[in-house]
Amino acid sequence: MLEASLGDVLRADAGGRTPLVLVACSGGPDSLALAAVAAYFAQTDRCRVGAVVVDHGLQEGSARAAEGAAAAARGLGLDPVEVRRVEVRKDGMGPEASARSARYAALDDVAARLDASAVLLGHTLDDQAEQVLLGLARGSGTRSLAGMPPRRGLYLRPFLDLRRQETEAICAFYGLEPWHDPTNQDPAFARSRVRVEVLPFLEDQLGPGIARALARSAQILGQDADLLERLSAESYRSLRIDGGDGTLLLPEDGLLALPAALRQRVLALAALELGAYQPSFERLRAAESLLDRKGSAGPVQLGGKVSVHRQVRGRAVLQGEASYGNLVLSSNRSNGPGVKQSHRPTQE
């Protein structure tokens, strides 16, 4: 399981050094079990294993819990082991998203400084099922419903096929006493409600295989999302025109020739290149409606202060005749002529 996840990471680099793998360890059952398995694996001398403990400072006693997790990791033989305290900023995101952003920033920093080959995350099949249910509740698209990928860049999730009770059994086998984060039971958080109330209810009503079925759906959708993203990236490269001064142009006829699933992704890629955050489905549909050539020519706000409007190419034509030009995407720093831009922050 772990060996399959690490793959090429286990090979020594060109300098002959044994690769360093870091475990993101909170001290909870999942990450502590992962640290124990990784420590055992390191005894083969095919890799070195260290740990990073992130203290979010969001609750009383968090520093003590972080030091306890670090001590447990050192007791397993992991080296180096670092504790990083982060500041969770209130920047418009929810508390869970803000904490996640701060956590990954810390993990990125430590991994880069220590030249780590991989960072292991202890997410389990139960976490994956919860992620899919949250995505369904939000009305999300394919990528979100695909849940968490087994690998993204340096980050690996070798426990996505394990249930939470199995990680607890691993901790018991090694005589470890994991820390249980009280926020995991706090109904103020949506994920906690899904974990404590929604998923147990579904398993009671639909059968104990619901979590595994949701995780299997995520795996299937992940393959679909990978293909759609590859095709949309190819389409975007073929259509994208640099309009100068930070604007991007997308030919209307080229967009209309695409299936809706690719067309919306191409529009999103253009918005993201200009610095927007991921546009919602409703905003992408509003941008797509500009291609109907009915009503307003825009602008449509795509989020992150990026807008799109329709531009007619060439000379005017008689009313009712076909006319194709470009959709023009721009940010507030590069408004097209005659385009009135709203400076109010967009709400998703």
Rank of each mutant, 00 (worst) to 15 (best):
L156K: 04
R193Q: 13
L202T: 01
L239Q: 04
L269V: 07
K90P: 07
R46A: 06
R143W: 12
P182Q: 07
L76D: 03
S101V: 12
T167P: 05
L262A: 09
V110Q: 08
L121K: 06
P279S: 06
G295Y: 10
G141P: 08
S192M: 08
P149W: 13
L120P: 03
D253E: 14
R164N: 02
L120K: 03
R237Y: 01
A24R: 00
L267F: 12
D126L: 00
Y277M: 13
G15P: 02
S144D: 15
Q128H: 08
Q59T: 13
G122I: 05
R143D: 09
V132G: 04
L154M: 07
Q128I: 09
G28D: 06
A218N: 04
D45P: 02
A69N: 02
P279L: 01
R89H: 13
L136I: 14
R283L: 10
A97M: 06
A12D: 12
T183Y: 11
S342I: 08
S334A: 14
V308N: 06
D115Q: 03
Q205N: 09
L269C: 14
D30K: 00
A190P: 02
R240Q: 01
F281L: 06
Y324W: 12
R344H: 14
L249E: 05
A213Q: 13
V52W: 08
T167C: 07
A146I: 11
L267Y: 12
P182G: 13
A261G: 00
G92A: 11
L34E: 05
V312D: 15
L239P: 07
R265G: 03
Q278P: 08
D45C: 11
P200D: 01
E82A: 12
K294S: 04
P187A: 10
E203P: 04
G209R: 03
A97P: 00
A42E: 04
R163P: 02
R89A: 15
A188S: 13
E252K: 01
A225M: 04
Q319V: 15
Q43R: 15
L145R: 12
L256P: 08
P259N: 05
A42M: 01
P178G: 13
L269M: 13
T346Y: 15
V306H: 07
E203S: 11
T167V: 14
R193C: 13
D245V: 05
V86H: 04
L290S: 01
V86P: 01
G153Y: 12
A211C: 07
I241V: 15
N326D: 15
P208G: 05
G244K: 03
S330T: 14
S140H: 05
L228Y: 12
A36Y: 11
L256D: 07
L302R: 02
Y40P: 00
R152K: 15
Q59I: 14
L291D: 09
V54P: 02
L133F: 08
A4K: 14
L284V: 02
A71Q: 14
G336N: 09
T247P: 00
N326W: 14
L258E: 04
I170P: 09
S289V: 06
L107S: 10
V198D: 02
A116N: 02
R46I: 02
D204R: 15
T183C: 11
D115W: 03
A70W: 04
